[in-house]
């Protein structure tokens, strides 16, 4: 067999694609006849992206609410369903008090976190042996921590999700290896829906993307055994979100 250089393989695949696409395919939903099945016309504007029309699908999706209060209510409702422990508190001091209380109940001996104004203050308040993941760490050291405390980019009312990333939330593993993930956030980080969340994240990072961005929705879960829900399959068994 002849060794193919990667360039050749790329050209081969692209050539096959271009050849295939010389014959146009019917538009979706037409079943080749041009009917539209139950299509409702979009009230939202249709704009163009790189020359193609884009239907703003946002209007069709589950709503996220229109006021900050509604966002909060929705996030709380979604959290309850996901079994996220969501606590909206009055002040940072109260958040720390709650954190200390959870730490005592669960008997945290080692805490893992990263440097940021919110997490630094929290780790001082907790006053426990702390692993900071910034600048590298040994995975075994993180594995023995009972909790990973991080900040997040945004919280999403529509879905009860939050967004962490590998640059400003302490890396890829901090929010998923320890059995308990605690997120500290401010109320103004709560956005309406996924569309807004992606826009915000894009604004935050510009073109300088972190290597990982994760939309986290509830604690780790599985239904692989008889479709029965179990929390803590491989990631955290508990997810606590504290906002003020």
């Amino acid at each position: 067999m002849v060794e193919e250089s990667p360039m050749n393989a790329q050209e081969r695949i692209l050539a096959r694609i271009r050849e295939a696409l010389t014959v146009p395919a019917p538009k979706p939903g037409s079943h080749g006849h041009g009917h539209d099945h139950g299509r409702v016309e979009a009230p939202a504007p249709v704009f163009s992206f790189k020359g193609r029309p884009v239907h703003v699908a946002r209007a069709w999706l589950p709503p996220g609410g229109s006021t900050p209060q509604e966002h909060l209510t929705r996030f709380a409702a979604a959290s309850a369903e996901l079994k996220t422990d969501f606590r909206c508190v009055e002040s940072e001091a109260e958040a720390h008090a709650q954190l200390r209380q959870i730490a005592d109940t669960e008997g945290w001996k080692r805490v893992a976190t990263h440097h940021s104004p919110l997490t630094d203050a929290a780790s001082t308040a907790l006053a426990r042996p702390t692993l900071f993941t910034d600048g590298g760490y040994v995975p075994d050291d993180l594995e023995v921590c009972e909790v990973g405390i991080t900040t997040c980019d945004v919280l999403v009312a529509q879905t009860g999700s939050l967004v962490v990333n590998s640059r400003t939330s302490g890396g890829r593993a901090l929010s998923v290896l320890p059995p308990h993930h605690v997120v500290l956030a401010r109320k103004d980080q709560l956005v309406c829906d996924l569309t807004e969340a992606f826009q915000r994240v894009e604004e935050m990072h510009g073109q300088n993307w972190p290597s990982m961005i994760s939309l986290v929705t509830g604690p780790s879960r599985t239904g692989d055994i008889e479709r029965i829900l179990v929390l803590g399959a491989h990631g955290p068994k508990k997810l606590t979100v504290l906002i003020w």
């Binding site: 993941t133 890396g171 986290v216 780790s220």
Partner: peptide
């Protein structure tokens, strides 16, 4: 509503990142 983790990867570990 959405799956538990939806994660975007844009590269290997970037300068300044702690793991990956």
């Amino acid at each position: 509503t959405v799956t538990g983790y939806n994660t975007l990867y844009g590269g290997p570990r970037q300068p300044g990142e702690s793991d990956g």
